[in-house]
Amino acid sequence: MEKLNTTPKVYLIGAGPGDPDLITVKAVKAIALADVILCDRLVSPEIIDRYVNKKTEIIYVGKECSKNASTPQPHINTLIVDHASQGKTVVRLKGGDISFFSNVLDELKVLKQHHISFEIIPGITAASGAAAYAGIPLTARGYATSVRFLTYYKTEILSDAYWKELGTSDDTLVFYMSKGNLNGLVDRFLAWGKLDDKKIAIIEQATTPYQKVYTSSLEDFHEKFGDKDFVSPSLVVIGKVVNLHEEFSWVETSIQEGIYFKSVTNGTLVSNNQNIIQYAV
């Protein structure tokens, strides 16, 4: 395999949304060079099995805030600096894209502070992967001229004024990390929104063998899905473009039930790699 420029000591890499075939060629080359990989939960175990050298040390630093099972960011920063300072090639591997709703800024700051060279390798973000695999073009002509990426993991994160503006906008709205507040999110649109023919889609475990897509009008959401606990990760799309899902959906709805991104159990990931260490909280 052709080698990358090995001057950078740390590679910050997006692994894509789930389907292991969606990782970039450049990411695969960097992963193959790694002495140490700090790996998030939302990374396909098949990526580890396919592309990681069996001698590479893999450190699980996943985040599951809803289960109070997250590795503290300062601890992750310390691990990156400690290993890079030993002259090792370090890969920080995250699901989706490295720059979308992640703590990459904290990691960039600590790398600059310690004068450690780095390279950022983007990945396909969850919004692109989920929308593509659900047959929902996010800026389809005649439906939306722009798209916004948001999060609603805390109810106080957006002001009433901003909600009102969102509710009347014709933009496609994509919400990350918001499944725990879905009922409240829908209530905001019912209170402030210009509903027209907008719909909501919840895409569970996008691009994986367990992908499921649920759609509804905003008015009918509570009746259809108000009591449902969607599987993590779930991405939410709101807008007129959701109406295109039924016509252009090309991935057969999975009849399988399961969890694709499993947590570390008893110190091991679901992977054939034998060099995995868990840093539990």
Results as ranks from 00 to 15, higher is better:
Phe225Gly: 06
Arg141Asp: 08
Lys212Trp: 00
Glu64Val: 12
Ala15Thr: 06
Ser216Val: 05
Tyr152Gln: 01
Thr168Phe: 12
Ala127Gln: 00
Thr139Glu: 04
Leu218Arg: 01
Ile48Lys: 01
Tyr153Cys: 11
Lys112Cys: 11
Pro122Val: 06
Val52Thr: 07
Leu22Tyr: 12
His114Arg: 09
Glu219Tyr: 11
Gly267Ser: 05
Val28Met: 13
Ser66Pro: 02
Ile157Arg: 12
Gly239Thr: 03
Val264Ile: 15
Thr71Val: 15
Gly95His: 03
Tyr162His: 11
Leu244Arg: 03
Lys240Gln: 12
Cys39Tyr: 03
Glu107Asn: 08
Phe175Gln: 04
Tyr260Pro: 00
Tyr176Met: 11
Gly239Lys: 00
Glu57Lys: 14
Ala131Ile: 05
His83Asn: 14
Thr155Trp: 03
Pro45Glu: 07
Asp227Gly: 11
Leu269Arg: 04
Ala15His: 01
Ala15Phe: 08
Tyr152Gly: 02
Glu223Gly: 04
Ile157Gly: 02
Ile136Ala: 00
Ser70Arg: 04
Ala84Ser: 10
Lys55Ala: 08
Gly184Val: 05
Ile255Cys: 08
Val110Thr: 15
Ser234His: 08
Asn5Gly: 10
Thr139Ile: 11
Pro74Glu: 13
Ser99Leu: 12
Val10Thr: 06
Ala127Thr: 09
Val36Ala: 02
Asn53Gly: 06
Val61Pro: 00
Asn272Tyr: 08
Ile47Lys: 04
Val10Gln: 03
Lys154Asp: 11
Val90Gln: 03
Ile136Trp: 00
Leu150Lys: 06
Leu190Trp: 03
Ala126His: 00
Lys240Cys: 04
Lys9His: 11
Val52Asn: 00
Ser99Gln: 09
His75Asn: 13
Gly18Arg: 03
Val90Met: 09
Phe175Asn: 00
Phe118Cys: 13
Thr207Trp: 05
Leu38Tyr: 00
Tyr279Val: 15
Lys164Glu: 14
Val28Pro: 05
